[in-house]
Computed example of a mutant assay.
Amino acid sequence: MSPTPRRFPPLRRVLGRWRGPGVVLAALGLVLSLLSIGPASARADLRATDKAGAVSSPRSANAPVRVAEFVAECPFTHRLPDDPIVFPGLPGASHMHSFFGNDSTNARTDLAALQRGRTSCSPTVDLSSYWTPTLYDNGKEVEPTGTTFYYLGEGVRDDVIATIKPLPLGLRIVAGNAKATGVGDPTSIARWSCLHHGEVNPSKDFVNCPAGSMLESYLDFPQCWNGKDLDSPDHKSHMAYPVGGQCPATHPVAVPKLRQVLRYPVSGDPSRFTLASGAGYTMHGDFFNAWPEDEMARRVRDCINVIVKCGADGRP
Rank of each mutant, 00 (worst) to 15 (best):
G285F: 06
P256H: 10
P123T: 12
V261N: 13
P210G: 02
M239I: 08
F288C: 00
C247Q: 11
S60N: 15
F100I: 00
H97G: 02
R299N: 15
A180P: 05
P81C: 05
P64R: 00
M96V: 03
G278R: 15
A276S: 03
A190W: 05
I37W: 00
S277C: 03
G155M: 13
R43S: 13
T132V: 09
G280D: 00
A240P: 00
D185L: 09
P84Q: 02
F287T: 00
A107Q: 02
H97W: 06
C74I: 05
G245V: 07
D185W: 10
I173S: 10
R116D: 06
G53L: 01
A93W: 10
P256W: 00
E73S: 03
R19H: 07
G22F: 08
R108C: 07
F206L: 10
L127F: 01
L262H: 08
A162I: 03
P21Q: 11
P202R: 01
D229A: 06
F149I: 10
V308L: 09
P292M: 01
R116L: 11
T147V: 03
R12A: 12
I85Y: 12
E199R: 13
P210M: 01
P9R: 09
L275T: 04
P186C: 01
S237Q: 11
D185M: 09
A112R: 13
P166F: 12
A48E: 15
